[in-house]
Computed example of a mutant assay.
Amino acid sequence: MSSDTNAFGIDFYSGNKKALLTCIREGVKQPYSFVVTPNVDHLVQLEHDEQLRDAYAKARWRLCDSRILLSLLTRLGVHLDEAIPGSDLTLDLLKWADAERLRVVLIGSVESEAEKLRALYPGIDLYHYNPPMGFIKNPEEVQRCLQFVRENPSELVLYAVGTPRGEVLAAATQPSERTGMGFSIGASISFATGTIKRAPKWMREYKLEWLHRMCMEPRRLAKRYWIDALYIVPAFLREKNARQKTSPAKQES
Score class of each variant (00 low, 15 high):
133 M>F: 15
168 V>P: 06
224 R>V: 04
85 P>I: 04
40 V>S: 01
170 A>P: 02
133 M>V: 12
21 L>C: 13
96 W>I: 13
165 R>S: 12
126 L>G: 12
83 A>S: 15
212 H>C: 04
69 L>S: 13
148 F>Q: 08
90 T>V: 10
12 F>Q: 00
247 S>C: 01
218 P>E: 06
252 E>W: 00
241 N>R: 10
122 P>S: 07
86 G>W: 04
121 Y>S: 09
47 E>N: 08
189 I>A: 03
48 H>I: 07
91 L>S: 14
211 L>D: 04
183 F>W: 03
67 R>C: 10
228 D>G: 05
115 E>Y: 03
133 M>H: 14
38 P>W: 00
74 T>N: 14
111 E>N: 09
42 H>N: 08
192 A>V: 06
74 T>S: 13
189 I>F: 07
55 A>P: 11
82 E>N: 10
133 M>K: 09
95 K>R: 15
35 V>A: 03
180 G>K: 04
246 T>F: 00
211 L>N: 06
154 S>P: 03
16 N>G: 15
30 Q>M: 08
108 G>D: 07
250 K>D: 09
70 L>R: 06
33 S>E: 08
33 S>C: 11
87 S>G: 15
176 S>L: 08
44 V>W: 02
18 K>T: 13
107 I>A: 11
89 L>R: 13
156 L>G: 03
5 T>D: 01
99 A>Q: 15
10 I>H: 00
253 S>Q: 13
128 H>T: 08
78 V>N: 06
194 G>L: 09
150 R>W: 11
176 S>M: 07
147 Q>P: 01
62 R>T: 06
45 Q>S: 09
246 T>A: 13
50 E>A: 14
137 K>M: 05
26 E>H: 11
114 A>S: 15
239 E>T: 04
49 D>L: 00
163 T>C: 15
233 V>M: 07
71 S>R: 13
86 G>C: 12
241 N>Q: 08
165 R>A: 14
47 E>L: 01
107 I>D: 03
